[in-house]
Amino acid sequence: MSSTIVDNHSLQARLKSNLIGLQTIVIKEVTRLIRIWPQTIVPPVITTTLYFIIFGKVIGSRVGEMSGVTYMEFIVPGLVMMSVINSSYQNVVSSFFSSKFQRNIEEILISPMHNATILIGYITGGVVRALTIGTIVLMVSLFFVDTLAIYSVFITFLVALLTATLFANAGFVNAMLARKFDDIAIIPTFVLTPLTYLGGVFYSITLLPQPWETISRFNPIVYMVSAFRAGIMRDRLDAAAFDTNLGFSFGMILLFIVVLFSTTLWMLKRGIGLRS
């Protein structure tokens, strides 16, 4: 018995083999996303809808305008971004750690796939879930705002894509290092949620007194929320309300992605948390 692909070791054959491997991981992740939709899709949509009702309708009606738009309109991009960040992170951290826990990660570790293929596969799974939920949340927001004119679909989509990529990668690192289920809850609870809430989802950080405004600028989520909000309503927001420059935001997100992706590849090569 010998494989028809065994004797083909050219660079082209390896690339093709890795592309099939990547496709396999993505299909597996999307199948999982669909199979357990009550866990993966419904909860973030319900939570965000509650935010729209409580913060947007009930409290927002008393807040009035913020940065030139109604408070409800102001929080829509922030809440979409919050869903994107949480969903991308949660998808990868729970899927990869479950694979590690059940030891079916060994199926992948013994295969000839390149580490980058494995990482990109899981990140893609996280991005698919994040963009799916982000789109649903954006559609839900239409029930709460009169119109939702998007200033630039390209900027909006690109910010969501890059942010989902970054946090899916972060979830992968968390899963690699986690030894028990508690370990995959610590970062989302004690790091991700506070950073998101303080990242300009519900307010513009320009409203904060010093030194809190300066401190907030060290929060990477500020740049993502701000860029996403600019993508949706740059033409309607007060110029003074922009927390960051759009180009600078993209630069920061890309820098975080490059650093985190490279670090993760190094960790995979060393087998940290995966190989004894």
């Binding site: 491997g21 496709q23 396999t24 299909i27 000839p112």
Partner: peptide
């Protein structure tokens, strides 16, 4: 899936 990880078309 295992076949896919080894680069075998679906």
């Amino acid at each position: 899936q295992q076949a896919g990880y080894y680069g075998i078309p679906r």
